[in-house]
Design a protein around this nucleic acid. Structure first.
Lengths: 325, 325
DNA sequence: GTGAAAGCGCTAACAC
DNA sequence: GTGTTAGCGCTTTCAC
């Protein structure tokens, strides 16, 4: 094998492969040359068996698979994860929680099959995964609702601030009768964005009573807008908790002949294709989704490596101005 | 360990775990009892090392990750795959081709890290993966464009027939001036659906010149419809190669005040949320996406097991009648 | 800094 | 049918 060609022992080859610091530079070179020459690829299973490291990271996908995949946010985050990991030895394993009974997922995760897990669900009832963090390195994308346990690592954006910015933008452009279509109140993103809207409106001395709730979907946004109109409320500015919601709401407004931004201005969160392609295109808050995924992966890898890592990483957001205000 | 508790040798335990047929029934029971009692979970890496089976299946995701995830079709197929595999010992590994250079993906697949691969890309230029099939069990979701090599296993629907059915539905409902918005002509789904439209129209003695091409996306469908209208063509029935395309096209028609199905009737393929939520809702062809995923996984697993498998599995489709005709 | 030797936990001939 | 005996290909003390 490689050892013979490089004229060293198997141990030394192993050390080189694992980037051990105490190998003579010349030897490192010789071994690497031999590796290239022989097109040597270390056997994963053998490494895992001997070292107890699986070099595998699980990506846990929540129960509602359909909606999960429908949301461009997740797609992008996953892509970011995959991009980061592709530069490492780690492999991504998909764990679809819904399909395999919860117990099986849990046992798989605890059974030494993975070195760590990435959790992309946001539901407050997912306390189970928070608990998982005590026995396995875990990083959450988005703060699990409830509150942050000490042991919990999170990569998120400041949803309160993002919502405030988006709302203030409406106010700064002369809108005074504000409404919001809020997301689910069992996810931190839903809660925080509503909170941000309230704070911004409150700070400007505006009425904060026009609130409709829905899930993060286009059809949900449409339904919520119908309810809002049916309620008899009048408003000239709407902050939607996501661009999917806004997109559905805009459809309804167009149907009713209400002009945007003429009669009603809109801002939202998420700079996805809904924001870009809705009519009119949306002024919105961009989250660095790819980078969030990358950061999640990086955090987990460093956690696994035993490094000290910040329990909370807040990614920056950015206002994107388009035609809806 | 388990062997001791059950009063047998490690080999016998192994045989039971691997469901060997020649173990005495009583012994099987005793061993299983011990397994439950001890909460024993076999070590994956050790099994892999000793048996050369990785118990891992790769899901290869094509270059265009963003669009891939945006398409509910894929999401559903993946879910089907995951559901089937959850009942087996196999694990799903996500391989995002775009992020890791192609060579790396290929080497990973050939490097003995997986027992087989599922390929969900449809591009004709993906011949690379067709070649992969010579060295690894591979199952394609959707026929790779070009033609079927002998060595190639495919799970697909009959896109030609589906398009014919959808087109005939328009004809049967009195539409005579037919147009189509076709998908990319470098994917079999795009090619076959256009072909089906042509055949159905031809068979009815209708004009087949009104064709616009686009990708399988909402915005693409909108653009194509704009071009179709700009071309001055008049038509009273449109077959769209996907519901996403139809959805975009409908947006444009609504904008222009053209009524559906009054002025123009629509049919499409894919019974996803676009078909359900577009205005009006779409008469469309349903593909059994979950089942396709399951069938792909099943085919691959049986292939790996060395069983004889049909190289081509055609899944049934179903017409769903809604309000667009 | 490097080599020798001892497993990691399982499967797979091979005997019995 | 079941136990015995070797490894699978690496990592990792432990000496040197």
């Amino acid at each position: 094998m490689v050892a013979a060609l490089a004229g060293v022992s198997r141990s030394t080859v192993s050390r080189v492969v694992n980037a051990s610091p105490r190998v003579a530079p010349g030897v490192v070179e010789a071994v690497n040359a031999a590796i290239v020459e022989l097109n040597y690829v270390p056997n994963r299973a053998a490494r895992t068996l001997a070292s107890k490291r699986t070099l595998t990271i699980a990506l846990v996908i929540p129960e509602n698979t359909a909606r999960f995949f429908a949301d461009p946010y997740f797609a992008s985050v996953i892509q970011g994860v995959a991009m980061y990991l592709s530069a490492t030895d780690y492999t991504l394993t998909l764990l679809i929680a819904s399909e395999t009974d919860p117990e099986k997922t849990r046992r798989y995760l605890q059974g030494g099959n993975v070195d760590g897990a990435l959790i992309l669900s946001h539901h407050s009832d997912d306390r189970s995964y928070v608990q998982l963090a005590t026995s396995l390195p875990v990083v959450f994308g988005g703060r699990p609702a409830g509150h942050a346990d000490p042991n919990t690592y999170i990569v998120d954006v400041d949803n309160v601030a993002a919502a405030q910015t988006a709302t203030r933008y409406l106010i700064d452009h002369g809108r005074r009768a504000l409404a919001t279509i809020a997301g689910p109140q069992n996810m931190s993103a839903g809660i925080d964005r509503l909170d941000g809207w309230r704070r911004a409106a409150d700070a400007a001395g505006l009425d904060v009573s026009r609130v409709e709730y829905t899930d993060f979907s286009v059809s949900g946004g449409a339904d919520a807008m119908r309810r809002l109109l049916a309620s008899g409320a009048t408003f000239d500015g709407v902050f939607a908790a996501s661009s999917q919601i806004a997109s559905g709401a805009l459809d309804v407004l167009r149907e009713r002949g209400i002009s945007v931004p003429g009669d009603v201005a809109f801002t939202s969160i998420d700079n996805d294709h809904y924001a870009q392609n809705s009519i009119p295109s949306l002024t919105t808050i961009e989250q660095p989704t790819l980078e969030q995924g990358g950061k999640m992966a990086e955090t987990l890898v460093r956690l696994i490596a035993g490094e000290e890592v910040d329990p909370l990483t807040i990614m920056p957001t950015k206002l994107i101005e388009r035609s809806s205000v």
